[in-house]
């Protein structure tokens, strides 16, 4: 096309650009703009309304001096570590069991995955009820004759986060199992045959051959679990409301409460910025390994 007037770059492929406007707006205004806005305002002492009165890292100092924030972080660390370990472990074991060419595989898989369809609110409320010491598991064991049996995680500040963990694992392991099963199925049957000919035990084949080959699936699962953990909010709100006292607080709830209940915006912004930093610590090395390597390799 040798038109006398050079077509303006901006109008080439115009329809595609119009179609991409929502994406461009979301990317720039929400993901970049709003994130930087929050980080920017976390250095101010905004209270009820955002104000541009800078106080340096005051909000962060206050944040890390706050007992509630420290408890939130500790809870997130415990919850996060246990969720990672147990969902990967249970998810893989269940997937390996389902992989044994069993009958009713679809039925078992449906049962193990259905909690994932439920919201965290529903999950939290159900487990609040099951773990209720007056009517739930504790009562049943006591009725069996063990009068002094105590199992009241939701009312014991020391272990309440494990009560939340039980519910979280119930809801989430099905997904990991599904991913793992897809991973196991993706492995070449020839490898199984070779391992059998060499007389390698089944569990050894799983541990030393299958798991290393499933590295991408494990990393994907890891990233999924990690990014979900940081966001854990609904579950705690529904199951414990952060209680007893502040024993089961989590960072996401800290942010929400300071932004919308305590009217202390600066503090909420600082806390959410810390959450962003936490995610970045997990995601950046992963992204670098996954995508950086792919380009060179």
């Amino acid at each position: 096309m040798s038109a006398s007037v050079r077509p303006v770059q901006l109008f080439r492929n115009l329809n595609a650009k119009i179609a991409a406007i929502p994406m461009i707006l979301t990317a720039l205004v929400i993901f970049v703009g709003c994130s930087f806005w929050t980080i920017f305002y976390s250095f101010t002492n905004s209270k009820l309304l955002p104000k541009l009165k800078f106080v340096g890292i005051d909000q962060y100092e206050r944040l890390w001096a706050s007992n509630r924030w420290l408890i939130s972080i500790e809870n997130l660390a415990i919850y996060g570590f246990c969720t990672l370990v147990f969902s990967l472990l249970i998810g893989f074991l269940l997937a390996a069991l389902l992989d044994q060419k069993i009958r009713f595989e679809n039925t078992f898989r449906s049962i193990l995955l259905y909690p994932f369809a439920l919201s965290f609110i529903v999950t939290g409320l159900v487990w609040q009820w099951v773990l209720n010491p007056q009517f739930g598991i504790q009562k049943i064991v006591r009725d069996l004759g063990f009068e002094s049996f105590t199992f009241d995680p939701l009312y014991n500040p020391d272990i309440v986060i494990y009560g939340v963990l039980i519910a979280g694992l119930w809801q989430g392991t099905g997904l990991i199992m599904c991913l793992m099963l897809a991973g196991i199925r993706g492995i070449d049957q020839e490898i199984w045959k070779a391992a059998r000919i060499d007389g390698i035990k089944t569990w050894k084949t799983y541990v030393f051959i299958v798991i290393p080959m499933m590295r991408p699936i494990f990393i994907t699962s890891l990233v999924i679990i990690a990014s979900q953990i940081v966001r854990v909010y609904d579950l705690v709100v529904a199951q414990t409301g952060g209680g007893p006292g502040i024993a089961s607080e989590v960072p996401a709830k800290y942010v929400y409460d300071f932004l919308f209940l305590n009217q202390n915006l600066g503090q909420g912004f600082a806390a959410s910025t810390m959450m962003l930093v936490t995610v970045a610590i997990v995601i950046v090395p992963w992204a670098y390994l996954e995508f950086g390597r792919r380009k060179h390799g």
Binding site: M23, T26, A27, L28, I30, F31, V32, C34, S35, T38, I39, P50, S227, V230, R231, P251, A252, V255, Y256, L259, L265, G268, F269, A271, S272, T273, M275, L276, V279, I283, A287
Partner: peptide, 15 residues
């Protein structure tokens, strides 16, 4: 940006 943005905790952007 869109894909990386999916990992940003919602708490950062809600206000």
């Amino acid at each position: 940006i869109l894909i990386v943005g999916a990992f940003i905790p919602y708490q950062v952007m809600i206000y």
